[in-house]
Design a protein around this nucleic acid. Sequence first.
DNA 1: TTCCTTGCAAAACTTTTGCATTAAA
DNA 2: TTTAATGCAAAAGTTTTGCAAGGAA
Lengths: 136, 136
Amino acid sequence: MNAIHPDIVNERLRGCGILPTVQRVRIASLLLVAPQHLTADQILGELRSRGERVSKATVYNTLNLLAGKGVIRQLAVDGGCAWFDSNTAPHFHFQDVDTGALTDLPPETVRFERLPLPPMGTEYAGIELFIRLRRV
Amino acid sequence: MNAIHPDIVNERLRGCGILPTVQRVRIASLLLVAPQHLTADQILGELRSRGERVSKATVYNTLNLLAGKGVIRQLAVDGGCAWFDSNTAPHFHFQDVDTGALTDLPPETVRFERLPLPPMGTEYAGIELFIRLRRV
DNA sequence: TTCCTTGCAAAACTTTTGCATTAAA
DNA sequence: TTTAATGCAAAAGTTTTGCAAGGAA
């Protein structure tokens, strides 16, 4: 598994007005090492298997904090638990219907010819596109 | 609120191999009366307010059964609880970011110019498109 | 009768919250 | 020293499950 220098994460968090505590840096480092999709439970499990102590509550609090500041993105996928995406650039996803696992879609493979105008009194807050895949 | 003839629902369920019991017909009738999006809890509340007795477990079991047979569609929306859509034709959704409420998108307002090929060994199982709206 | 469905309560899960303890500035 | 974050356990919310009782064929 790759690593990311703690100072980089530290500065990234500070830049967003987030106090970089030990636990927050651990969680952010894990996600930001590469573009990926992880659940809260996967993050907790990975940190604990490394011997780094974090509580479940802190994992959730930190993920919500990071998502609120735009460091990561919470994906609105169904199925029991939330997925957190370390790639905050606009992009779409493949999703395996059986496992729920997500894969980034190459951005240039999707193009819209037509999209609706937002209804009166509203504005776009984002577009989520999931292409579900079944194994054959 | 409109009504739908019980016989119609009866036949619809039988046609899918579902035994049309009293509770199942109540739940299906509520959903199928119009294209709409309801949560399990909304369905339970509506039936109870009409004085029709159903248990929570049966609502969930029935919704899963109907979705499994393709009578309704379970939407993969994030946020605590599942939404069930009585419109099974291919279509997309607006979603209010604050309330989570869903609205059907007029189908002709979305057109793709380009979509990715399914990766080797997979095939399309469906496309979910949510356009999130924020009130201004 | 035989099989399937229902209802209730309890269990299983994910996520949030209250509060004493601990760490950061 | 003062303020904010952490950890634990308990609470909250949605969904599933086990089992006795009731309904359909």
